[in-house]
Simulated assay, not measured.
Amino acid sequence: MMVEQPILSVRNLSKQYGEGCLHCQQSNPKLEKNYCPVCKTVYACRDISFDLYRGEILGIVGESGSGKSTFMKSLYFDENVTTGEGYLQDYKDGKVNIFTESSQMKRQIRNMLLGMVYQNPILGLKMDFSSLSNIAEKQIAAGNRHVGNMEARSYDLLQHVNIPLHRSKEAPKNFSGGMQQRIQIAKALSNNPPLLLLDEVTTGLDLSVQADVLDLIKSIQREFNISMIVVSHDLAVIRMLADRTIVMLNGEIIEHGLTDQVLEDPQHSYTQQLVYSLL
């Protein structure tokens, strides 16, 4: 019997800001949340481990400062991890730690195998370039040099995310927040990545626009069978999208499991507080 291999395995990922000291590097350090009161080191992520399977959506939930966005930036190489291992099945058969690869190889992984949708579209889009150019930029980075193919792919994706084609040559700065997020999604999909990372993509959007963006994400996942990691502080978003959920607090995973299980029968007191605050 063949055992399904995870598309992404992460083991003991940690990210700290500061050198650390004897006080905070002992086996059971007394931190103030994720902060060392002695040397001022911040432990944004501590020993994060999980597996993600093909076609699965993994939700990550937690309050501001819990480490979830730092974790996503680490996966997309916007931040260098302090320690830890990561293995992508589509990169060297999942046998090489992506976090220890060279900057050049990390760029290749990012361009070929990952898509990212940021909470703030300014981080993911060039606001003065046309929507078409933004999508083409990702394709060029992934090695596409055929202008006709790039243009056709860009138009197809804009249609897919419900951006009117007559506005394809407009700059994203002229669009609403919801449209900017949809352009980011189109750009992230342009290189056919097996893994899509979405960081608080509905924050700040009107409720009706949030619903449109969430419906779009769900339809993309069904159509392309793409794996996703979705970060949100909004449990309603996680409930709608995620197959499994990780709960983070002070840089650590405090609970994980099937989304229904975590939200219907939370075990950790913090998760209980999160869930019951919505009731």
Rank of each mutant, 00 (worst) to 15 (best):
M72Q: 09
S74E: 00
G124D: 07
G62R: 15
M116P: 04
D78R: 10
D78M: 12
I109A: 03
I98C: 04
M72A: 09
Q104F: 07
G143C: 10
G59P: 05
I135P: 05
Q108M: 02
K68F: 10
T82I: 08
N149S: 12
G59C: 07
Q108H: 01
F50S: 03
G148V: 04
K126T: 03
L75E: 07
Y43N: 01
S49M: 06
S103N: 13
G115R: 15
K106G: 04
G67P: 14
D128F: 11
N97L: 05
R54Y: 06
K68W: 10
N134T: 08
G115W: 08
M112E: 15
N80L: 05
M105S: 06
S66F: 07
L114M: 04
F99P: 01
A141T: 04
M116I: 14
K138F: 00
Y118P: 13
S130V: 07
A136M: 14
L123W: 06
L125Q: 08
L125M: 08
R54T: 01
I57Y: 00
I122Y: 06
E101I: 02
S74C: 12
S49K: 12
K92S: 02
D128P: 11
T41M: 02
G62T: 13
A141K: 13
G62I: 15
G124I: 05
F77E: 04
Y53M: 08
K68M: 01
V61M: 04
D90R: 03
G55H: 01
S69R: 04
L58F: 03
Y118W: 09
H146S: 12
T100C: 06
Q104N: 10
R46Y: 10
L88W: 03
